[in-house]
Nucleic acid binder design. Structure first.
Lengths: 178, 178
DNA sequence: ACCTGAACACCGTTCAAGT
DNA sequence: ACCTGAACACCGTTCAAGT
């Protein structure tokens, strides 16, 4: 009945890492803390993963993969926004991994497909621009949420999300013409 | 003639920190390394600065303040982009500090003024959107530059900048109508 | 006013050795 | 195949004590 140290594959490590991310946030998410939550020695993680950056890239891919499928540029953008805002500090995780070649590029692919369907004349460029706006937006929203939970900023952290959603939609509408 | 440990004010610490940032990058910029470069014990820094995050926010303000003045939305955006891309890992420094209440908000103020001059109907919202795009863009550009210097990506790191400048101008042009 | 020295509670990562 | 134990080379930060 003792399962400590047994049967951990990469997927279960990612599961636990995301759960821990939501609980304690990125600054406190250490390899040692994650190993502790898995009931394993820190060094055990390095059998499954090359290093911390690679692991974070895997988290980023999983988080982005959870975004609902969508057809239009605007609905794609909102789905990706929702997926990122669903996990604590996810914007920073995704941004840090995005252009290091470590993450899969799923964000750009989704935007590329949406812009192609919309008849864009340069879907690759449009997708790059949309990705940049999405990541900048979610980064600032999530930092405002965090500031609000500490009590530094707005009254209610729960509706920083909704109050910035319209702002985001405005930006995407402007960029939809690319 | 021995000046070690003497006469450091906050400004000279920021100077040295930015020089060190350009040399070794953000991941290696530790308080201990900075103290070493200043010829001082690590603990000495804490007389001048509350903590590392506060110091990084001061770096962000200094970097943004170096942007050339500009009137239009597009010229303002390009000036801010140039200022950020002028220092290694500056996008991450600025983004991390931006909405934590630690940085001064100079980016938003500059965009706000530019959009007001341009006759925007909601300059505050437009400025927020433009800031988000600027930060997302510079983050991805700088990570691509870094990836290129490691040799992972493009052939020439020096013109990742120029090749993405047109992309940026496209996005800003679309957002200029806000 | 400004700095040192020493300590506290941590990190990521490697690697021999175990089973 | 998968994990432990111990080590290496670091972190940010605090705080008494010095000058």
């Amino acid at each position: 009945m003792d399962m400590r140290g047994a049967g951990h594959d990469l997927e279960s490590i990612i599961d636990q890492a995301i759960a821990l991310l939501d609980d304690i946030g990125l600054p406190d998410l250490s390899m040692r803390r994650l190993a502790g939550a898995l009931g394993v020695a820190p060094s055990a993680l390095y059998w499954h993963v090359a290093n911390k950056q690679t692991l974070l890239a895997a988290l980023a891919d999983r988080i982005v993969a959870e975004a609902a499928p969508a057809d239009g540029v605007d609905t794609t953008a909102l789905a990706l926004r929702d997926a990122i805002l669903a996990h604590r500090d996810a914007a920073e995780v995704v941004t840090s991994s995005a252009a290091l070649g470590l993450s899969s590029g799923a964000i750009r692919e989704r935007f590329h497909a949406a812009y192609t369907r919309a008849g864009s004349s340069d879907p690759a460029r449009a997708a790059a621009v949309a990705e940049q706006f999405l990541l900048g937006h979610t980064s600032l929203v999530q930092q405002r949420i965090q500031a609000a939970t500490i009590g530094a900023y707005d009254a209610n952290p729960r509706d920083v999300d909704t109050s910035t959603r319209a702002e985001f939609a405005d930006g995407i509408a402007a960029l939809s013409m690319l």
